[in-house]
Simulated scan of single mutants.
Amino acid sequence: MKKGAIFDMDGLLFDTERIYRDIWSSPCPFVEKINPQVAEAVCGTSGAHLIEILFSYYPGVQAQAYVDWALDSVDALLQKEVPQMPGCEEILSFLKGNNVKIAVASSSRKELIERNLQITGLRDYFDVIVSGQEVVYGKPEPDIFLLAAQKLGLPPFDCYVFEDGINGARAGIAAGCATVMIPDLTQPTAELKQRCTGIYPSLLAAVQAMEQGKL
């Protein structure tokens, strides 16, 4: 078993990826006509990479203002309730019980990560929190996972990365972590099926694999 575990948040720990998809697919003050491909393209990204994606679909858009609007809209919807994904607490409890250091590395704002963890009562499981705001290049670049491993005091190869998205899984692999994909809205590509350490239908299935020494 690895000594560290780094978790994405939206679509993995919490059933919130659909909220982001809905927001990016909704009419907004910055774009006359929404491109339906944008929601998937920006999934799991942040920072300069997110801005680049928006410019590629909407040349000349006020990209940072658009990002701020989208994140504020998500914030407003998550003020009171944050639904957990099946197996969320079980895997965190299992890892903590086996003295594995735990981090969350999410493209979301740090204050939103903290609030979600507090609302759900999961904050004490995590030794480290890393936000996409802390790196220049978001997923699929490896920066956020490299920073999380550094803050855990561990080499990347001794850390699991748990991800639901394609960009995130690619980032975990690029960082040199043992990358485990738990697909939510997006299914793994043929490339990821070959390169991921494991792909499981749920966090519960991943826990079972760890208990059996298969992960």
Rank of each mutant, 00 (worst) to 15 (best):
Asp68Leu: 10
Leu152Trp: 06
Leu147His: 10
Asn99Tyr: 08
Leu112Ile: 01
Cys159Glu: 11
Trp24Gly: 11
Ile6Gly: 08
Lys214Val: 10
Cys177Tyr: 01
Ile173Lys: 00
Leu185Phe: 09
Gly138Met: 05
Leu117Met: 14
Met1Val: 12
Asn99Lys: 14
Leu71Trp: 08
Ala169Tyr: 01
Leu13Val: 08
Lys193Val: 01
Ala70Trp: 05
Gly11Glu: 01
Cys28Arg: 07
Pro86Asp: 07
Lys2Met: 14
Thr45Ile: 04
Glu40Cys: 04
Ile199Met: 10
Ala105Met: 07
Met1Tyr: 05
Lys33Gln: 14
Lys139Met: 02
Ser26Asp: 10
Thr120Trp: 07
Leu112Gly: 00
Asn35Tyr: 01
Trp69Ala: 09
Leu71Asp: 12
Gly198Lys: 06
Leu147Asp: 07
Thr16Tyr: 01
Ala178Tyr: 11
Cys43Lys: 15
Pro27His: 06
Gly11Leu: 06
Tyr160Gly: 04
Asn35Trp: 01
Gly87Trp: 09
Asp158Ser: 07
Leu203Arg: 08
Leu54Gly: 02
Ser26Met: 13
Ile102Phe: 08
Glu134Pro: 05
Leu147Gln: 05
Leu77Thr: 04
Asp72Cys: 02
Val161Met: 11
Leu215Ala: 14
Gly165Lys: 06
Val136Asp: 06
Pro140Arg: 02
Asp143Ala: 09
Gln187Ser: 11
Gly4Pro: 02
Tyr20Ala: 13
Ala76Tyr: 08
Gln187Leu: 11
Glu81Gly: 00
Leu112Val: 06
Ala41Thr: 08
Tyr160Lys: 02
Leu92Val: 10
Glu111Leu: 09
Leu92Phe: 06
Phe55Met: 04
Ala205Ser: 14
Val207Met: 09
Arg109Cys: 02
Tyr66Asn: 03
Val104Ala: 15
Arg21Lys: 12
Pro155Gln: 10
Pro155Ala: 06
Tyr58Ser: 05
Cys196Phe: 06
Gln84Glu: 15
Cys88Asp: 01
Leu77Gln: 15
Glu114Tyr: 00
Ala209Asn: 08
Asn35Leu: 04
Ile144Pro: 04
Gln133Pro: 00
Met85Pro: 00
Thr16Ile: 03
Glu163Arg: 09
Asp158Leu: 00
Asn116Phe: 00
Pro142Val: 08
Gly168Gln: 08
Val136Met: 06
Phe126His: 11
Pro140Asn: 04
Glu134Ser: 11
Tyr200Arg: 08
Ala169Pro: 01
Asn99Glu: 15
Gln194Thr: 14
Ala174Asp: 05
Gln118Gly: 00
Asp68Val: 13
Gly97Phe: 08
Met1His: 10
Lys96Asn: 14
Gly165Asn: 03
Pro83Gly: 11
Lys214Thr: 09
Leu122Met: 08
Arg123Pro: 00
Lys110Glu: 13
Cys88Asn: 14
His49Asp: 05
Asp68Arg: 09
Val42Ile: 15
Val42Ala: 03
Lys110Gln: 07
Gln133His: 10
Gly97Met: 05
Arg109Phe: 12
Tyr137Ile: 13
Leu122Ser: 04
Ala65Arg: 13
Ser106Asn: 04
Ala178Ser: 15
Pro183His: 11
Ser202Val: 09
Ile6Phe: 02
Ser131His: 03
Leu50Ile: 02
Asn98Val: 00
Lys3Arg: 14
Glu32Leu: 07
Ile51Arg: 13
Ala171Thr: 11
Ser25Lys: 14
Lys101Val: 02
Asn167Arg: 14
